[in-house]
Nucleic acid binder design. Structure first.
Lengths: 338, 338
DNA sequence: AACGTTTCCGGTAACGTTTCCGGAAAGAAT
DNA sequence: ATTCTTTCCGGAAACGTTACCGGAAACGTT
């Protein structure tokens, strides 16, 4: 069942059928009705690859993701998928191992599938303009490190919170509550990722308040999984390093870290205050409710897609959104008696 | 940059280039090397839509999902996506509203995209053979109700736990601990979904032990979100209905329900035991650790894809996997003092 | 009556592949 | 020397669509 069959059945030319299928002008109302009826009764469905071939572009968006551990990304991915779907585009998803080159992967995907746009989610992003020029469609970096070096800002878009500032504020909350021995948990501290920015924010907040950064209190978890948070907290406790508060860079890890504290017979927040970043709906329902910096994850995901669509359909230049993270005052932080 | 350019550059015919690109025989080693080199230096990337058009099939799998609320599905979706990706196929994702027809959506997708297979995730499934005949590629129903009525079992595959049995066992655990006033929380009880099967399992376990089903203790949450669990538990408590235990059909809702109990100054498990179904990694890290029936979600997702691939590539008949759910003995259930 | 204009439509090339088929060249068997 | 295989290769049709172009018919306008 092709466009040709419909044309024959209606006694019209195939270009006429094509016109009504694409809502183009130059076709009488009478013929349009007839064609539409034939399409309906025959259950005709256009062949997308033929269309893509002649137009030499598809209606697909490529999404390349690195680091699937973090639930925050899972949530965003769901919104991104739904949002792309809702706008009538297809999503081609590509998961990358940590050692793969996301730009090269994106460029290949773009050409193979004749993508309309690309969305990068998570991961590092220290590419040069030369490398980025490999990709020839609009793209947005979603929840990436926000230091894009020498890249021309009008060439692409990005959406993410200010990770430095958010970490700075979170740590400041602990300091304001009287804490100075503040442990901190990051995926990694020197990999050009958002984790590094958050680490910088942590250090800055301490320094600003005259507190030295104690390397013994900085833990690299090596991931965003709950296990990573649990294990890291456990081993910090066992190391004997004294601390009265902890800053954890992701809710999921914080929940696991709290479990580790409980398992070591430490109360939260009485024996150790905990603050995190993410603001998952989930962490509202733990006991105590997690005190955390809420990232507007849904907004970030939705806006990323919207901006990408605007670049594709309206040809606008790149925009760089920095939505605010704001404090959720849960029950996992308390003032330290001085 | 097309196959034609490569052919010209190498001084060979385009069919020869096509042959080396597809690892077909009938090409000398010398020519193969030359072509491969030209492909490499020119960064040639084949056009997928052209290929799909002539072969009249793509390398894509359609995944249609209904009910995105449940985290359990999110987790599975991630595995499914990674698994499809890993095997070199593309995934076309379609989210459906609860009132949409998943089979019709799948059939359209299949023809538009020339899919190789279809995977249905979650939702109801009371279709007739006539309706199912709309879809012309292998398909597997993943985590669906396992009552497929009149459908011929060899025509399709399915993978999911036995929801009736799992619910039966969970409720039996509570009864064995001495409980008889057992509240229960389901998305819905009469919609041909897994929820209905679980409700049936709940009733059967009670009856088996001579306990009458008290409608006042059966709550329809109208969803799988945490809010649904919280709200439902709250209103049950406020209704004044007496109960010493609760069976909740999903971990996420159970966590929220426990929060509601806490907020009403009831201790878990001392004042109310809670058991659930899902076994999310997450619910190991709550306090108390959730007692729940662990669904092998990763296995379900992985096996679903594997089976679908076997049907596609090896032409095997439909298989129906019923992996076992097994109890995780957490800390949210305790014996009732008699 | 002759001449624009507008409205509608069909023929056809093109998109970049794969696949079929025929054939040249080289080697083996008679 | 002839014929028969085998190995390798190129030409060309086909996949189903879109877009361009040219033209017929209908309708004004002078």
């Amino acid at each position: 069942m092709t466009i040709k069959d419909i044309a024959r059945e209606c006694g019209v030319g195939i270009s006429t059928v094509s016109r009504v299928l694409n809502n183009k002008p130059d076709v009488s109302e009478e013929v349009r009705k007839k064609v539409l009826a034939a399409v309906e009764t025959n259950g005709y469905i256009p062949n997308n690859s033929a269309r893509d071939l002649v137009k030499s572009r598809s209606d697909a968006i490529g999404v390349v993701v690195r680091g699937t551990g973090n639930l925050f990304f899972s949530d965003m991915l769901k919104v991104i998928a739904a949002e792309i779907d809702r706008r009538g585009y297809d999503m081609i998803l590509r998961f990358l191992a940590t050692d793969e080159d996301e730009v090269k992967a994106g460029a290949i995907l773009e050409r193979e599938k004749k993508l309309r746009g690309l969305l990068f989610l998570g991961g590092r992003f220290n590419y040069t303009p030369a490398e980025m020029s490999l990709i020839g469609v609009p793209y947005v970096c979603c929840s990436y490190t926000n230091s894009f070096g020498t890249l021309r800002e009008s060439d692409f878009s990005s959406v993410s919170i200010d990770d430095f500032k958010t970490a700075y504020e979170a740590v400041s909350v602990l300091i304001a509550a009287g804490h100075s021995r503040i442990a901190a948990f990051f995926d990694a501290c020197d990999d050009h990722s958002i984790s590094e920015l958050r680490y910088d924010g942590y250090c800055a907040a301490l320094k600003k308040n005259g507190i030295p950064v104690d390397p013994a209190l900085v833990v690299q978890t090596g991931g965003f999984e709950m296990e990573d948070g649990y294990r890291s907290m456990k081993s910090l406790i066992e190391s004997g390093a004294g601390f009265t508060a902890a800053f954890v860079e992701a809710d999921m890890m914080a929940i696991a870290a709290i479990k580790a504290l409980h398992d070591c017979h430490k109360r939260v927040p009485e024996d150790c205050s905990v603050i995190a970043i993410d603001g998952l709906k989930l962490s509202e329902y733990t006991s105590p409710t997690l005190t955390t910096m809420i990232q507007p994850g849904e907004e970030i995901a939705r806006e990323s897609v919207r901006i990408l669509m605007d670049m594709i359909e309206k040809g606008i230049e790149g925009v760089h959104l920095r939505p605010e993270a704001h404090l959720r005052n849960g029950g996992s932080v308390c003032s330290r008696q001085l």
